[in-house]
């Protein structure tokens, strides 16, 4: 791993960590809820005409799926680069 790569990774980490200190009181919720608020402010009488067919039961199930997702995605990317590296040195 060269210096440039390490610096780029550091930049990504800083971009995520610095906001935490810029907004000490915030819970960093999703911006989609805010958009919903604006819609209701602009069109207070609007009734959504279709409901989601299914949604996850709660936060724990959701965090399980998040962890699973990150693990599987990282696994596949690791597999790809491992395979290509092996093919290169073979």
């Amino acid at each position: 791993m060269n210096t440039k790569t390490i610096l780029l990774i550091l930049a990504v980490i800083l971009l995520a960590v610095v906001p935490l200190f810029l907004n000490p009181g915030s819970e960093f919720g999703g911006a989609d809820g805010e958009a919903e608020g604006v819609i209701l402010a602009v069109a207070p009488d609007y009734q959504p005409w279709f409901q989601p067919l299914w949604s996850p039961p709660g936060g724990e199930t959701e965090s399980l799926l998040f962890a699973l997702q990150a693990a599987l995605g990282a696994g596949l990317i690791g597999y790809y680069f491992g395979l290509k590296r092996g093919a290169k040195t073979a």
């Binding site: 995520a16 960093f28 997702q69 990317i77 790809y80």
Partner: peptide, 25 residues
């Protein structure tokens, strides 16, 4: 396989709910 890797990349990225300067993620 590269197409699959591209998919996995989008998969991980979309899992990263990153805090932003506005105080939302």
């Amino acid at each position: 396989l590269l197409l699959g890797m591209t998919g996995a990349f989008a998969f991980i990225l979309s899992a990263l709910k990153i805090p932003s300067v506005t105080g939302s993620s």
